[in-house]
Amino acid sequence: MDRNLKRRLEARLEAQLRGPIRQRQDETEIRIQPGDVPDVLRTLHDAVDLRFEILADLAGVDTGEHMQVVYHLWSETSPDWLRVIADGLSRDDPRCPSATFLWTGAEWLEREAYDMFGIVFEGNRDLRRIFMPPDYTSFPLRKDFLLPDDAARSTGEGVRHVERSHAPAVVADDPAAGVRRAPAS
């Protein structure tokens, strides 16, 4: 745990932090509003005593109640991994500013989060599906995605015709599958 990093983050990001900074083992975690993402990431990247230059990961999370976008950052100024959680995106219309203005490489990571969770990253110029076919309508990593093969419902329209299944199966919704929710923490 890097106590010093906690002090620096509190000094730099006082206005944007939502909730306390949590530290456990070699990780430091902060929570912010989705709207503050560009400002916070810019500060973390540019401030001389922070310099988080390496974007280790960008991931979407569906807690069952709302969506999150989670950034993992690394800096040579701290021995800790920094986790930035943009919390409280609505599940019906999740929107978050893009991080591509700072890390071009976030483009595909955001495409993946869009593909899997439906999170719309405003400012990403290439936000289309990356793994699933372009006509696919579900978001597979959401907690209300039914496992009995949703993919069979896709007609494959838009897929090149050699790869298309000829008769799309009709799968009835499974009423037993409920939404799994994370405990509020």
Partner: peptide
């Protein structure tokens, strides 16, 4: 691809 383009970049 046989569908309308979806993004600016595409």
């Amino acid at each position: 691809p046989p569908y309308p383009t979806q993004t600016e970049r595409e």
